[in-house]
Simulated scan of single mutants.
Amino acid sequence: MNITIVAGARPNFMKIAPIIDAIKQKQTEGYNMNFRLVHTGQHYDKNLSGTFFEELNIPLPDVNLDVKSGTQAEQTAGIMIGFENELAKNPCDLVLVVGDVTSTMACTIVGKKAGIDVAHVEAGIRSGDMRMPEEINRIVTDSLTDYFFTTSTIANKNLQDLGVKPEQIYFVGNVMIDTLRKNEPRLKQPKIWKTLNLKQKHYLVITLHRPSNVDEEQQLKSLITKIVTLGKDLPIIFPVHPRTKKLLEGLDLSFENLHYTNPLGYLEFNYLVKHALGVLTDSGGITEETTVMNVPCITLRENTERPETCDIGTNILVGSDSKKIESAFKNLLANNWKQGHIPELWDGHAAERIANHLVEIYEL
Rank of each mutant, 00 (worst) to 15 (best):
P185Q: 14
G8P: 09
P211H: 14
R138G: 09
K245H: 06
Y362Q: 05
L204H: 07
A22N: 15
I286M: 07
K24P: 04
G163R: 08
K26D: 13
G163F: 10
T287G: 06
T225A: 11
D142G: 10
H241C: 03
I206M: 14
I136R: 01
V101I: 14
V318P: 05
S254K: 13
S212R: 10
G173E: 13
L223G: 04
T290G: 03
E289H: 11
A355Q: 12
V214C: 05
V101Y: 04
E305R: 00
A17I: 06
M80E: 06
V110K: 00
E256K: 07
P61F: 15
L364C: 10
E84D: 15
A276T: 10
E86R: 04
T195C: 13
L220T: 00
T314A: 06
K199L: 05
I169W: 01
Q200S: 12
A155V: 08
Q42P: 08
L198D: 05
K226F: 03
L251P: 12
K330N: 08
I192F: 04
L280T: 08
V273W: 00
K246L: 15
T304K: 01
I342N: 03
N34L: 07
A22G: 12
F255T: 07
G30D: 04
E29Y: 11
E54V: 11
E268N: 03
T314M: 14
I316K: 03
I3K: 06
N57K: 09
K323V: 08
L358S: 09
K226V: 08
G82K: 02
P166S: 13
N315W: 05
E86T: 08
T179C: 13
I136T: 12
T225E: 14
A119I: 14
F171Y: 14
L56A: 07
Q189M: 15
D21F: 07
I19P: 12
T290K: 00
Y31S: 03
H241N: 02
T151G: 15
V95A: 05
G128C: 12
L230C: 08
G8M: 04
H120G: 08
H349M: 10
F52V: 06
L364D: 13
I154L: 11
D142C: 09
L272S: 01
